[in-house]
């Protein structure tokens, strides 16, 4: 059914810390790996060893330069995947019912055997979270690793999305954003988490934590002067004797 549920029992999603992400793309690789081997059609590549390789990815990391009015530019690494929106425009446009939002946990999924590959859901998504697989002809998107998070064959520590499990910087957090007491909700509260493109009216579940302001030196420092400054203003010990001796000459 492409009618969105009026409410979901839980709002499972990701919190992505832009302050911590180092842009290593490990989440991109682990996502591609897990989702190629598991749920649904594999994420295909076209011409992978040729001049213009291209492929289906459910998670991509952009890098942006942010230039403040004063001070140095900042480089921000920006992982982007499906935000599992509460008002998901991709779901309502689907003509076949292949796209749906789950009532129990709010995950937006594609039933690939119903997908006709019309591409309209990808057109409707402002975030570029959906990609048509060129080999399979169906729409692929982040499943929030639905085949990991409830998978009792995996050790408990692995029952989180592959991207979260693999992130070496701890920049990705997974949990129930519908529960105000959950660790992720608390984190969003504390760090002032934001929605992407709020004006699009999609009400994304995933939140982004903006980079914290960088430490700033109080005054402008001449780089070379830093090394030439006297180590001690009032000499003591051997230097005090030397100082006195030299003055007497």
């Amino acid at each position: 059914m492409t009618q969105l549920p009026s409410r979901t029992d839980r709002k499972l999603g990701l919190v992505i810390d832009l302050d911590t992400c180092v842009g290593c793309h490990a989440c991109v690789i682990s996502c591609k790996g897990w989702n190629t081997e598991n749920y649904g059609a594999p994420l295909s590549d076209q011409n992978p060893y040729g001049a213009e390789p291209s492929g289906t990815f459910l998670n991509r990391v952009h890098s942006y330069e942010v230039l403040p009015d004063h001070g140095a530019a900042q480089l921000v690494h920006f992982p982007k995947s499906c935000l599992h929106c509460e008002d998901a425009p991709c779901v309502t446009v689907c003509p076949t019912g292949a796209s749906y939002k789950r009532v129990e946990d709010g995950i937006v999924l594609v039933n690939e055997s119903d997908c006709i590959g019309c591409g309209l859901c990808a057109w409707a998504c402002p975030y570029g979270a959906r990609e048509m697989d060129a080999a399979e002809g169906v729409m692929k998107k982040c499943t929030l690793c639905v085949d990991r998070i409830y998978n009792e064959n995996l050790p408990e520590i692995d029952r989180v999305p592959a991207c979260v499990r693999t992130c070496p910087a701890g920049a990705r957090h997974f949990g129930d954003l519908g529960d105000p007491d959950s660790a992720v909700s608390q984190l969003v509260e504390r760090r002032g988490g934001i929605d992407l493109m709020p004006e699009q009216g999609t009400r994304p579940v995933n939140k982004y934590l903006p980079p914290r302001p960088r430490d700033r030196l109080e005054r402008e420092v001449d780089g070379t002067a830093l090394f030439l400054e006297p180590v001690a203003d009032e000499p003591s010990g051997f230097f005090a004797w030397l100082d006195k001796a030299l003055e007497k000459i």
């Binding site: 832009l18 793309h25 991109v28 213009e52 390789p53 291209s54 492929g55 289906t56 990815f57 991509r60 990391v61 952009h62 890098s63 942006y64 330069e65 942010v66 230039l67 403040p68 009015d69 530019a73 900042q74 480089l75 921000v76 920006f78 982007k80 990808a122 402002p126 570029g128 990609e131 048509m132 060129a134 934001i194 929605d195 992407l196 493109m197 709020p198 004006e199 699009q200 982004y208 903006p210 980079p211």
Partner: peptide, 29 residues
């Protein structure tokens, strides 16, 4: 009202410029 600032949420920090795309090659998007 949608621009790079609202897309990235980084508008409050300063002017946003795309520095590196996710992949060197083209993609579906």
């Amino acid at each position: 009202g949608t621009d790079m600032a609202s897309a990235t949420g980084l508008g409050d920090t300063g002017r946003v410029r795309a520095f590196e795309p996710p992949h060197t090659g083209p993609n579906y998007l």
